[in-house]
Each structure stands twice: as structure tokens, then as C-alpha cells.
């Protein structure tokens, strides 16, 4: 059964990898222009789309910044507490 699980997992992984491996050189920035450009958008839509996306990007930038500020403080507090916990546990182990 173990071998069957390995085989199924391996096939799933190969299928998941296929699009990446087959495009590793063709779709990479190493080959030049791959990012979709504003110039490819019809000129009559460009202004509106640019304004809309500017609003969306600004919202996301602000949200990510706030989340990172909170996460940073949380991680520091948790690390200090957990470090102290292992110090206490170690003291118990030694005793």
C-alpha cells in the first residue's frame, strides 16, 4: 500500500509541475517581455482601468502594510514567550 501511495503522490506532483517545467525558460523574465503592458489595452479603456487599478492597489498596499505591522509585533511577543517557555521546560528536564 505504501508503494501505491508514493506512486499516486508522485504522479500528482508531476502533473502539478508540468506547466512550470515546460515553461521555465519560455515564460521567464530572462526571455524579455512577459508582463502584460498598458500599451496592449485599447486607448479608450486605458485611463479608466488605470484609475480603477490604482485604487485597488492602494487598498491592498495599505491592508498588507497594516497586517504586517500587526504580524511583526505578534511574532516578537510569541517568540519571547515561547523562548521563555523552553527555558522553563529545560529547567524542569534538568531537575
Amino acid at each position: 500500500m505504501s508503494r501505491a501511495i508514493v506512486a499516486v503522490a508522485f504522479v500528482v506532483a508531476l502533473i502539478a509541475l508540468y506547466p512550470y517545467v515546460s515553461n521555465i525558460s519560455t515564460a521567464s523574465s530572462l526571455k524579455g517581455s512577459y508582463v502584460f503592458k498598458w500599451s496592449e489595452i485599447p486607448i479608450e479603456k486605458r485611463g479608466t482601468l488605470y484609475e480603477e487599478s490604482l485604487k485597488t492597489v492602494t487598498k491592498f498596499n495599505n491592508a498588507v502594510k497594516v497586517l504586517l505591522e500587526i504580524a511583526g509585533i505578534f511574532v516578537v511577543i510569541l517568540t519571547v514567550i515561547e523562548y521563555y517557555k523552553y527555558y522553563k521546560i529545560h529547567k524542569e528536564e534538568v531537575e
Binding site: 502584460f36 487599478s53 490604482l54 492597489v57 491592498f60
Partner: peptide
Amino acid sequence: NPGLFFVVRTI
């Protein structure tokens, strides 16, 4: 909308 590319990049 190419602008959404930058939302993905921020995330």
C-alpha cells in the same frame, strides 16, 4: 487590467 498584476505582487 494590468494594474491587478501589482495587487498580486504586493500579496
